[in-house]
């Protein structure tokens, strides 16, 4: 590898990169983890309505501690605020927004994404003791666009961008775009298409860190 001058994006960097691409007017659900950070990177003048699956539409920024309302939390059960124009609904209505195809976008964390759009983000095996599905399967199936934000590789340099997922699926053929620490990949009928890379990284070096064939835009 000849690349010397590139720096992978950190958590905030990935969140900021994804935030750039969310247009005004979209209704968006942000998953637990890095996706939640995206809200802080959307400029205040750009009206994007954030949905939280526990029944809040129009989530606002985290309040100062002394102003926090203990009855107003997001899907991570962190205390949040609600914007003027926001609304509270019950859980079935909240998931009707998700499952009924009303959300323009959900952004989820991921373990693995396959070139056909399969997503694995809730378990590392079929038999592990914890089972934490939450709302991920509903969001992956229901939102018009499904973006995944994740490190490009695992901690021990294993590929997360794959021909086929090896972990249990969250949903099949659902992911439309992946924002990683190294690149932005579009999921297309011919597989992963690279639409952006961190400065200084070569296509060949990105390909070497991926477990599926990448295509140039």
């Amino acid at each position: 590898m000849t690349d010397t001058g590139f720096r992978p994006l950190g958590r905030q960097g990935m969140a900021a990169r994804a935030a750039r691409d969310i247009p005004e007017g979209w209704y968006v659900n942000l998953g637990i983890g890095i996706p939640t950070l995206i809200a802080d990177h959307i400029p205040a003048e750009r009206e994007v309505v954030i949905h939280s699956e526990n029944g809040v539409l129009g989530v606002g920024p985290a309040p100062e501690t002394h102003k926090a309302n203990p009855w107003l939390v997001n899907a991570s059960t962190h205390r949040v605020s609600i914007r003027p124009g926001g609304s509270f609904v019950h859980h079935a209505d909240s998931f009707a927004m998700v499952r009924g195809g009303h959300l323009d976008l959900c952004v989820l964390g991921g373990f693995q994404v396959a070139e056909n759009g399969d997503l694995a983000n809730w378990a590392h095996s079929a038999t592990e003791a914890g089972r934490q599905i939450g709302g991920a399967m509903d969001l992956a199936v229901g939102a018009k666009q499904v973006w995944v934000v994740m490190e490009h590789t695992t901690k021990d340099a294993g590929a997360r961008i794959l021909e086929r997922c090896t972990y249990p699926l969250t949903a099949a053929r659902c992911v439309t775009r992946v924002y990683t620490s190294l690149a932005v990949l579009e999921v297309t009928p011919r597989g992963f298409v690279v639409i952006d890379m961190v400065p200084g990284l070569s296509f060949e070096a990105l390909q070497a860190q991926s477990g599926a064939r990448l295509h140039r835009a």
Partner: peptide, 21 residues
């Protein structure tokens, strides 16, 4: 999680939206 692992309790884990619906 401990009780499920030990086989002392059954767990049916379902997607949250499916649970609500």
């Amino acid at each position: 999680g401990e009780w499920v692992k030990a086989g002392r309790m059954e767990a049916e884990v379902v997607p949250q939206g499916t649970l609500a619906e």
